[in-house]
Design a protein around this nucleic acid. Sequence first.
RNA 1: GGGCGGUUAGCUCAGUGGUAGAGCACUACGUUGACAUCGUAGGGGUCACUGGUUCGAACCCAGUACCGCCCA
Length: 896
Amino acid sequence: MLDKHFDPNQVEQRLYEAWEKAGAFRPSGKGEPFCIVIPPPNVTGSLHMGHALNNTLQDILVRLRRMQGYDVLWQPGTDHAGIATQMVVERKLAAEGKPTRWEMGREKFLEEVWKWKEESGNTIINQLKRLGASCDWSRLRFTMDEGLSRAVLKVFVTLWKEGLIYKDKRLVNWDPKLRTAISDLEVVQKETQGHLWHFRYPIEGEEGRYIVVATTRPETMLGDTAVAVHPDDERYKDLVGKNVILPLVGRRIPIVADEHADPEKGSGAVKITPAHDFDDFEVGKRHDLPMITVMDETAHMFLKDNPDFLAGLEMTSELEETLKYHGLDRFEARKRIVERMERLGLLEKVKDHLHMVPYGDRGGVPIEPRLTEQWFVDAAALAAGAIRVVERGDTKFFPANWTKTYFNWLKDIQPWCISRQLWWGHQIPAWYGPDGKIFVSETEEEAQKQAEKHYGEAVELKRDPDVLDTWFSSALWPFSTLGWPDDTPELRRYYPTSVLITGFDIIFFWVARMMMMGLHFMHDVPFYDVYIHALVRDEHGQKMSKSKGNVIDPLELIAKYGADALRFTLAIQAVMGRDIRLSEARVQGYRNFGTKLWNAVRFLEMNEVGRDAAFDPASCRLALNRWIVGEAVKTIGEVTQSLDDYRFNDAASAIYHFTWDVFCDWYLELIKPVLKEGDAAAQEETRKTAGWVRDVILKLLHPFMPFITEELWQRTGGEGFLMLSSWPEAREELIDEDAAEELDWVITFIREVRSTRAEMNVPAGAQIPAVLVSANAESRRRLKEWETEIRRLARLSEITLADEVPPKSAQIVLAEAIIALPLEGVIDLDAELKRLEKELAATEKEMKSLQARLSNEKFLTKAKPEVVEQTKHRLEELQTKHAKLEEARQRLAAMV
RNA sequence: GGGCGGUUAGCUCAGUGGUAGAGCACUACGUUGACAUCGUAGGGGUCACUGGUUCGAACCCAGUACCGCCCA
């Protein structure tokens, strides 16, 4: 006998281990392939709500397809997460009082990272298991394991040979805290309240004349190499071609005409610092200006012994003063420069200024554009294919609006900076000869050979110290995890994968790049469908963040309510294209749903409901059973179709509604009399039907709530695992409309009586008689059939037939008949009169609107015939009802 | 500035060109040996606003307002 409640903590781990031990997560090897590759969580990660949602949705699909007989592979793995992991380990070393990475050196540091990875890298995997994720863990991969690293090398070398990877000296986004280049995508713009300083730059040879430039970054002025004005700006026409003397430095720099200068903004003249600003860099290239870097890799001023800075300068006391800024942090330098300019009378004005400041998303400090040599992927070349396949529909986005976002980015794509000045990651397979000549190759030996061939003798090569952007290896994930570059059976069988499930925040970082790489190396899309899910917010719609303190920990909710409850909550709220607001009350509600199911099964168990594999629901004779079978079939159809369309919320709602509102509330209540005192044949049929419907529920619910359903399956003697059983079939021929109509009559009867009793303030415990008046033959038959059930559920002592409504009755219209509740002594006649009048009014209101519609010529001619038919039918029903109600009202009025 | 989304019950949200829905919260009552993590009944909505299309609009279109996100 089952306990009253399901205890997830006792069951989840045991079941999970049993599944895993039995190999239930492995592909069956039979049926059509179905494959999902997991968005690899960072090895540093621990499960947050986003993971919980992402993996719940994947698990739902994977479990569904498995039950449907597909050959399912859910490929798991983790990402080495270059910067994130390196930071975690650095922090750990610092906390332990160990030397910094710079002190211990690259090799030693990497040992520490690997050690950390072995110890802590699987935390999130274990957390995914708690969620119930049915990944094939025997195939767990890591972006830096041997096979995947081989894929990375091969891709890099191939793209290099094809000219799609190149090295270039360009201005890049530099994170001065992490001391590495980062890609455009890793830069976040933050609106910041700053200042716009207006500086006077003296015109050369025109004593006392200045040009005013406005800047938000005074510290960069030391690297100015021009002042730009708009070519059409009348104010400055005569100055173009002249020079200014850069204050504090003494450098002579030209005034150039360039459209970059906006006459509307500030003074209309702008200082140009090509080595510290992306726009200025372009201006510098157009006018062939020198590019002077004035900061080092940590964004401290770099002036002394800086040949670029000092080139052509005369040593003055002014310059000497400026050189004291060497080694200052950029913001301190800014302060001092502003002060000094003011002292010199060169600060015309300062205005508050709201502007965007670029921050590194990992380091959290403003990035400093920096002129360096980096490796780039020619993303534009690869993007063309990635656009084409989505345009053609080879890969579809769900919801479709993300397609546009995807296109917008790809159509304006910039070169992808893939080198990082970090240590943790795939080291770039490039070696340099003594003269700087580059040899790219998968192995050092091969590079040596190339060099020998090139130089005619063996030379010492030096390997590029940089590593690749983490997303470079992630981009290969759908094929590298399946074995590429080897031609493995898995690769042939599961690529392209069926669907990718991920968040919108990594469409550019990951989805687009997988598409580019997949097409280039596999000559086919990496996935047919891309389902983009929303963000999980707190219950007030706030983004969860540590600083706000509103983070809800999925593991806590799992501990409290079970994994099933959390999963169901996320699934039923997973509406396409809309964020999820998660509240604990909701999780609790779905935990209660589990309890409800648990007790329903418990009830069946108490009534000796078993499981008969040979039972065919088509053999049912009782309307009750034919009805519930039909309802179950409809539900099977809805759940299946919804999941096929990625409408997780609709699927979850359908099974929830059927289980609670139909199966528990009505079917189980209605079978109680049968099970207690029905004849043997009816009892047997009902037990078998109930068992069959219970199994349909367990199966339909299993992808959402794997644990409780599996447990119930086991506890009711189910063979094997529920998770490996077959998905139910929606056999439409089992839907019996007559049975549905009959049960609708019964249910309405009970509902109406209950409602009337409550309104008449009949005590809940009181048994009262009812009289069915002017019933036709079919209603009489139904009443005979259902009397026991109706009496029980409506708390009626007896139901008799009559031609007249007994005096002092409450009256309920049910189709052609009236249910009268003689309530002599109990009934409040005025209350009943009011009740009837209220119902009359509602009926009349609806009738009026229908009549208006039906008397509209255009409606009759233009609306769909079935709609017209429906409307007429409904009006007839209402007219009957109205007449009955009116009679009832008059009868009652005569008594008052 | 460009793009996308949102505005429906007290709260959180579904929803479809043809009778406005759920969960939670609320009110009343608790009775039927599955379930009080429950049951029964009930109250509560100008579907943001303004136009348009349509026989008919919460739904389609256009505009406005406010909120959110992404990109520059």
